[in-house]
């Protein structure tokens, strides 16, 4: 109990234990969605209750937490979640990817490679990759059980037939460990290759659907594609206007009221680190 009357990490120990059990199962069966029965968090869903529940269950007093939303540490959502954990767990927080032990994220994977020992916690709005194609939950469960994913390929086929390429730029479906079809959450397809054989542990929490899934370190994560239409991560064809990066994922931002626009890194820590290095060199 902290002085404020919260248990460490806000959740009670029973709930944490339940979530950790689900996490262990999830790690044991990479990409498989494990239901968890945690009670409601007294937070609105937009906050990413699934991600918060996972972070609350794995965080320890020695952890250093980073929270990003669309790649940025300074959005309202990211700031609120960071403050929340600073208060209920008393942990250190950071904006530096390299210094964090836990990174909770919505919609991005940091640009710099994560390393062993780090944990990346994704906030997931809809865990079921097949839900748009097959609305019956019993049927999607059966498809996962039988690794029967032809229908997802039909969707990709239809995209190519109609648009000449696969028209999925976010939440691009992946096959984990050669077995389970998984939703990577609404990260840009650009980030998908970072998931493959990542040294860090990747945990996914879906609050509304009450599902947890995981990708253990060094697990293969393959974006679905065709031999003659291989998966291609796309980014805007421009350098970052602030740091000049040609490798990072860019956001297009409006800079004035005359329709002026520029491209800047969506990963704010990556961008500011590069700017600082450049200034130091000058």
């Amino acid at each position: 109990m902290t002085a404020l009357g919260y248990n460490f990490g806000y959740l009670d120990e029973n709930t944490k234990r339940m979530i950790r059990r689900a996490l262990l199962k999830a790690v044991a069966i990479p990409g498989h969605q494990v239901p968890f029965g945690a009670r409601e968090m007294p937070l609105p869903y937009g906050w990413g209750t699934g991600g918060i529940a996972v972070t609350a269950s794995v965080i320890g007093a020695d952890d250093r937490l980073k929270v990003i939303d669309q790649g940025a540490d300074d959005t309202t959502n990211a700031v609120s979640i960071r403050r929340f954990f600073a208060k209920v767990a008393g942990v250190e927080t950071t904006e530096r990817t390299g210094e964090a032990t836990i990174i909770q994220t919505r919609h991005r994977i940091p640009e710099i490679a994560l390393r062993e020992g780090q944990v990346l916690v994704y906030q997931v709005p809809m865990p079921e990759p097949l839900f748009r194609l097959e609305p019956r939950v019993s049927e999607t469960k059966r498809m996962h059980a039988l690794a029967d994913y032809g229908l997802m390929h039909v969707k990709l086929y239809e995209d190519i037939a109609r648009h000449g390429h696969v028209a999925i730029s976010y939440n691009y479906p992946v096959l984990v460990g050669g077995r389970y079809l998984m939703s990577p959450s609404p990260i840009p397809a650009f980030d998908n290759p970072k998931m493959d054989r990542m040294p860090a542990l990747q945990l996914f929490g879906a609050g509304r659907e009450k599902r947890i899934y995981a990708v253990p370190p060094y697990t293969s994560v393959r974006s679905l594609d065709f031999e003659d239409h291989p998966f291609r991560p796309v980014r805007a064809d421009a350098p970052c206007a602030l740091c000049g990066s040609r490798e990072s994922y860019l956001d297009e931002v409006v800079v004035d009221d005359r329709g002026g626009r520029m491209f800047v890194c969506s990963d704010t820590d990556y961008c500011s680190t590069r700017q600082a290095t450049r200034e130091a060199a000058e």
Partner: peptide
């Protein structure tokens, strides 16, 4: 699903992965 996708489904279900 298009006519082509309907015919292709069984092929994809048994592992065909070449769009052409």
């Amino acid at each position: 699903v298009s006519a082509g996708g309907n015919i292709g489904e069984r092929l994809m279900a048994v592992g065909a992965r070449h769009y052409g």
